[in-house]
Nucleic acid binder design. Structure first.
Lengths: 253, 253
DNA sequence: TTGCAAAGTGTTATTTTTACACTAAGGTTA
DNA sequence: TAACCTTAGTGTAAAAATAACACTTTGCAA
């Protein structure tokens, strides 16, 4: 780690290339996203203050490394699942006045044309405690569904990431990166509903997810819940990984 | 068009940003790709001579415009279907010796770090007659399955484009951009087999594709073929477009 | 006239999907 | 302590989709 930082700091940040991270987390209720507050604009409810965490890319970094670095600087998490969303490069994507104002405060060449390569990542919310970082005065989780506006073209990037995530869930198992080690089928069910943004029949969901053979029943019950306690499950890492690689043709909720 | 060219020529090509096009065509037998021959390397069968058409991006261009410009310079085709494959940006993606040699002959800063944004496009092969262009001494169609090696990281880009195309065919109708106006069900069948790289049951394919309600039977037969002549079909543009937008959940061959 | 090559056509068994409602367990409350 | 609330957990039947499979037709060529 330290080696890499030293190496990077000796090299130039490329003024034309940046990366932005769409960091998803799940709180057992809804899908959340980690955003930084740029701390400009008067209203505290001005969503334009919020932006995806991101930064310029060093010339010796590959794209995923750069995204991983941004994620790590912000959350101190390592080895996090990352998936490329795509490149976003409209010539005027950073030229809005409020965006330029902010860029001037943090960048050497705020007017340079920048294309950004966006990645989305899935993290366990418990693993992250919000705190500041080099490029963010503050960072926090926000419910995805509450976000209506973001800095730059970040709202568009978020929507693209959501689309990708929804596609992904159709052909690969999902949850390993978003849920704690032990979880209930109800929680997994809620996660799928949150990502797909629609309700799924409980019995059909259970039958289908169990047939995938990626879950291990821990024979351990919830305690202290004011209703029938649920069984805990964990992912069978071997089968989960196998299925991630092969994918499945039909998981068409 | 001319306006755009003039505007572009007044602006700088950004030395850090390029676009590459994976241009697919179908010859009723197999999937083909349009590649340029860099004309270096001794052996004529040295696939390393071949590269995806691509170029640096002007600072006032958005990414799709740039890809569209490259495609248009090469083929003189306009309004072609383009889909982003993603960004490719390993720091050493252009540093291979033979690649550097070529870059020196065509670029001002051959050593600059370049990330490329790749697009794939689907074109009717008949609409294109191979010819040279500003960035290509020669260009020709090659069978996708024969390609084992390309310049830079272009082979990797091709594979990523193929993956995307295969995913796409599962959820959207396809063929409009690859087939002539009139075509037979056999040709459409072969197209699907070529893209998915596996054989599909004839009767099941026909039933499924007809159920989509995107085809119009022209009540017109092939003539001069040494076997039972086939009916010609065309796409029903309205239904095709509608289905492109909604997509379908299951077309899981 | 025979042969060849691709077109065109249905049925059946299997699998997958969808829709749907009640009982069980534990804590909370009146 | 009984009634209540909340989530867990369970099965079936109808409908739809998929998969597997073989023979006849048409036109030209030999």
């Amino acid at each position: 780690m330290d080696n890499i930082k030293v190496k990077n700091s000796n090299l130039e940040l490329n003024p034309n290339l940046s990366t932005d991270c769409v960091i998803f987390g799940f709180d057992f209720e809804k899908l959340n996203i980690l955003l930084i507050d740029r701390g400009i604009g008067a209203e505290s409810n001005d969503s334009n203050r919020l932006a995806l965490p991101g930064n310029l890319i060093y010339d010796n970094e590959n794209l995923e490394m750069a995204a991983s670095r941004v994620l790590n600087e912000l959350t101190e998490l390592k080895d996090i699942y990352l998936e490329q969303v795509g490149a976003f490069g409209d010539p005027d994507r950073i030229s809005k006045e409020s965006d330029q104002e902010w860029l001037k405060s943090i960048r050497a060449k705020p007017e340079a044309r920048v294309i950004t390569v966006a990645y989305y990542s899935l993290v366990k919310m418990d693993d992250y405690a919000p705190h500041a970082s080099s490029f963010a005065k503050s960072a926090d989780w926000y419910a995805v569904n509450d976000i209506k506006l973001l800095a730059f073209d970040h709202y568009e990037i978020l929507q693209a990431a959501l689309r990708k995530l929804k596609e992904k869930i159709r052909i690969q198992p999902l949850g390993f990166n978003l849920l704690p080690e032990k979880f209930t089928l109800g929680q997994l069910h809620k996660l799928y509903e949150a990502i797909l943004d629609k309700s799924l029949d409980k019995r059909n969901f259970r039958r289908k997810i169990l047939k995938l053979d990626i879950l291990t029943n821990l024979d351990e019950k919830q305690v202290g819940v004011p209703h029938k306690p649920s069984q805990f499950f964990m992912f069978n890492e071997v089968n989960y990984k196998k299925l991630s690689e092969t994918g499945f043709d039909n998981f068409g909720f």
